[in-house]
């Protein structure tokens, strides 16, 4: 059963068409990606996340979904700095460092759509002033935003 209603899918498809520039790769990481959920490792969340991403990927030819098992491909997870699962790395013309941990449902689904567009364009609505201040930062900055779907 599709996760999105047709009118929502149509709206997102139009936005992607109008606003996306570069291709975006959604790299999904879970212990197993075969649909055989392992008990006690968040298997159900991972399965739903994978379904949501698969549906989003159908909304634009510029979106590619790749599935990685952290059990059989630990080096792939390491390369993307994946700390927990389920995880989704949103990669554009370059890796801007954006990761989703957990299921992008509820309000966070809208966040996922905005992130895909921002990564695709390689830009955000951040002001010139803020950009200038951030360009002076030499240390690594790790921002973690804790959210819930409601």
């Amino acid at each position: 059963m599709p996760f999105l209603q047709e009118k929502d899918a149509a709206y997102i498809r139009t936005r992607f068409e109008r606003e996306m520039q570069h291709d975006v790769s959604l790299e999904f990481f879970a212990p197993t990606t075969s649909g055989l959920a392992l008990p006690d490792v968040g298997g159900e969340y991972a399965e739903y996340t994978q379904k949501i991403l698969a549906e989003v990927a159908t909304l634009s030819p510029k979106i590619n979904l790749t599935l990685h098992s952290t059990l059989s491909e630990p080096e792939a997870a390491k390369a993307r700095g994946i700390a927990h699962t389920p995880a989704t790395a949103v990669i554009g013309a370059q890796d801007y460092g954006v990761r989703f941990y957990g299921m992008p449902a509820g309000y966070e689904f809208a966040t996922l759509i905005e992130v895909i567009i921002a990564v695709s364009r390689g830009s955000t609505t951040v002001t010139e002033q803020t950009r200038a201040a951030l360009s002076q930062v030499s240390r690594d900055v790790h921002v973690q935003v804790f959210v819930t779907p409601t």
């Binding site: 968040g42 969340y45 700095g81 700390a83 927990h84 389920p86 460092g97 954006v98 990761r99 989703f100 941990y101 957990g102 299921m103 992008p104 966070e108 966040t111 992130v115 951030l134 930062v137 240390r139 690594d140 900055v141 790790h142 921002v143 973690q144 935003v145 804790f146 959210v147 819930t148 779907p149």
Partner: peptide
């Protein structure tokens, strides 16, 4: 600079470590 969006309910250990009682909560470095 990297940014993680963390579903607090799915990662209770992480949420506990950063005392997440209300969302959105932002933790930097």
């Amino acid at each position: 600079m990297r940014a993680d969006i963390v579903e607090a309910g799915e990662f209770p250990e992480l949420a506990g470590r950063y005392n997440v009682y209300a969302v959105p909560k932002v933790v930097i470095n």
